[in-house]
Computed example of a mutant assay.
Amino acid sequence: MANAGEGPYRGSCFCGEVQFEVSGNPAAMGYCHCSSCRHWSAGPVNAFTLWPLPALKITGGASSVGTYNKTPISYRNWCTKCGGHVFTEHPTLGLVDVYAATLPQLVFEPALHVHYQETVLRIPDGKPKMKDMPAEMGGSGVMLPE
Rank of each mutant, 00 (worst) to 15 (best):
C34S: 10
G5H: 11
Y99D: 01
C37A: 06
C13L: 12
P72L: 00
G24I: 11
V22A: 08
T102H: 03
Q117L: 09
S36L: 12
P145E: 15
H115I: 00
G61L: 02
F108W: 15
C37G: 07
W40R: 11
G66P: 08
G43R: 12
D132S: 08
T88K: 00
R38P: 11
W40F: 07
Y75L: 10
S74P: 00
I73R: 03
L56F: 01
L93D: 08
M1V: 15
Y68R: 08
L144N: 09
A62I: 08
K70L: 05
S35L: 11
A101N: 09
K129D: 06
G30D: 08
G84N: 05
A27L: 15
G7E: 12
F87H: 10
P26K: 14
K57I: 01
Y75S: 04
V22T: 04
F20K: 01
E146Y: 03
S41H: 13
P52S: 14
P128Q: 01
R122I: 13
Y9W: 13
V65G: 02
E21I: 00
Q105M: 14
E21D: 05
G138E: 02
G7V: 13
S64R: 10
G24S: 09
R10W: 03
Y31I: 06
V86K: 03
C82T: 10
E109L: 15
L93P: 00
G84Q: 07
K129S: 09
R10T: 11
C13R: 09
F48Q: 02
T88M: 01
S35Y: 05
T71E: 06
W78L: 13
A111N: 05
G16K: 09
I123A: 11
W78C: 08
P134E: 14
R122V: 13
Y31Q: 10
G30H: 08
V22G: 03
S140N: 09
P104D: 09
G126W: 03
G94N: 04
F14W: 04
P124K: 13
H90Q: 10
P110I: 10
N25P: 01
P52L: 13
A55R: 00
F48Y: 15
A55T: 07
G84S: 08
S41A: 14
T119L: 06
L103H: 08
G83Y: 05
E109D: 14
E146N: 08
